[in-house]
C-alpha cells in the first residue's frame, strides 16, 4: 500500500524501471544486484529498518541517491537520515509536487 501511494506520486513522464522491495533486506538485495539508481526508502519496515539500510549503503560505498519517505516526521528522524546520507526527506502521505521538486533539485529529472 505504501509503495502504491508512492508510485502514484512519481512524475508520469519519468522514464524508469521500478523495482519494489517489501523490506529493508529486499531493498539491499536490489541495490546489490545493481538495479537501483534512486531509492525511495521507508524507515519503519520489517527485518531491516530504513536507518540500517542507510548505514549499510554508506558502508558499501553508497552509490545510489536515497530519498527517505516516511510517516515518522520527528525533526530528529529527518536529521538522522540526512546525516546518514539521504538526499531528502519526504513525509507521508506523499505529495507528488514535493517528489517532483526533490528530483528536479538533484537534476534527476529536468
Amino acid at each position: 500500500m505504501a509503495r502504491k501511494m508512492l508510485i502514484r506520486a512519481l512524475p508520469p513522464e519519468w522514464d524508469i524501471e521500478i523495482t519494489q522491495a517489501g523490506s529493508g533486506r529486499e531493498a539491499l538485495d536490489a541495490y546489490r544486484a545493481g538495479r537501483v539508481d534512486v531509492m525511495f526508502l521507508d524507515l519503519t519496515m520489517p527485518e531491516i529498518d530504513g536507518y540500517t539500510v542507510l548505514e549499510t549503503l554508506r558502508r558499501e560505498d553508497l552509490n545510489c541517491l536515497v530519498i527517505v519517505v516516511s510517516a515518522d516526521i520527528q525533526e530528529k528522524a529527518q536529521e538522522r537520515v540526512l546525516d546518514l546520507g539521504a538526499i531528502a526527506f519526504i513525509k507521508k502521505p506523499v505529495d507528488a509536487a514535493k517528489v517532483q521538486a526533490v528530483l528536479k533539485d538533484y537534476g534527476i529529472i529536468v
Binding site: A2, T44, S70, A71, D72, I73, Q74, E75, K92
Partner: peptide, 10 residues
C-alpha cells in the same frame, strides 16, 4: 495507521 502513528510520535 502508520501515518497516524507518525503524527502522534512527532
Amino acid at each position: 495507521a502508520n501515518i497516524g502513528m507518525g503524527q502522534a510520535g512527532a
